Amino acid sequence: MGTIVEAQVPAAEFALGDTVSTVPAASFETVRTVTSGMDQPLPFLWAAAPEFDRLDDAMRDDDSTAEVTRLVRDGKHALYAVRWQARVRGLVQLIADEDGTLLDARLHDDTWKLRVLFPEKAAMSSFYDCCRGYGVDIDVNRVNGLESVVRHGGTRLSAEQYEALSEALDADYYGVPRGSTLVELSDRLDVSHQAVSERLRRAHQALIESSLHDGLTPDEPHP
């Protein structure tokens, strides 16, 4: 079964570590492309920064980049074409070696947050072990089965959280005034009301994080 992994890697061990040290307010996200080839991974980045001339210099001086070109600027955002040094290509190649697909990569506060699709959990485990073997300090934050992601509308909810939200909507729990109580929801779900409350809180948090992650805010690099 396919697995989507959310992991994080220090910028200093992947890409643009020098840049974010020089321009700490800068943030980046990759531009999704159909294919770029393993020799040219992550070819385009949206960046947000207070001073782009300074950011240009920092990116070009960064030891993870081989070539950097600013393509366009739109207010507080700019699009860059980047050719990477071998160590960046190497980590992406480790993903490809396990038949993985890098779905998304974002850099903020000295840390890259990655979302990777693997065909099965064994491939994810092998990738993790390889990273550790090469001295890359990768941390796995979340693992979701692909079936679960598809079944629950692409959200990052567990099956229990999705069920709790669905029941809450059906029971008009979010109505004003409320059409049901936590106790009534717990009866419908056959779990304690404390468990329902916890599932709803975590579901709300996951939905908010997902919305902020994929949405557009002034602090994010996407224009």
Rank of each mutant, 00 (worst) to 15 (best):
V68T: 08
A47S: 06
P43T: 07
R60T: 08
G37H: 00
G37T: 06
E51P: 05
F52T: 03
V92F: 06
R54S: 04
S64L: 00
M59D: 07
D99A: 14
S36C: 06
P50M: 00
V88Y: 07
S64T: 02
E98A: 03
A96P: 15
G90E: 10
A86G: 04
R70P: 05
M59Q: 07
Q93Y: 05
R32I: 13
L91D: 07
V92Q: 03
V92G: 04
D74F: 15
Q85W: 02
R32Q: 11
L55Q: 00
D57A: 15
R70L: 11
F44W: 10
R73C: 08
R70N: 05
P41K: 02
K76L: 11
D61P: 07
H77L: 14
T65N: 14
L55M: 00
T33M: 10
Q93D: 00
A49P: 12
D63T: 10
S64C: 05
F52Q: 12
E67A: 09
S36D: 15
T101Y: 11
V34Y: 10
A86L: 05
M59H: 07
A81Y: 12
R73D: 01
A86V: 09
V34W: 12
R89V: 04
W84K: 00
R54I: 13
S64E: 00
Y80F: 07
A96R: 05
E51D: 09
G90P: 07
I95G: 05
D56A: 04
R87A: 15
G37C: 03
A78I: 05
D62K: 02
G75N: 03
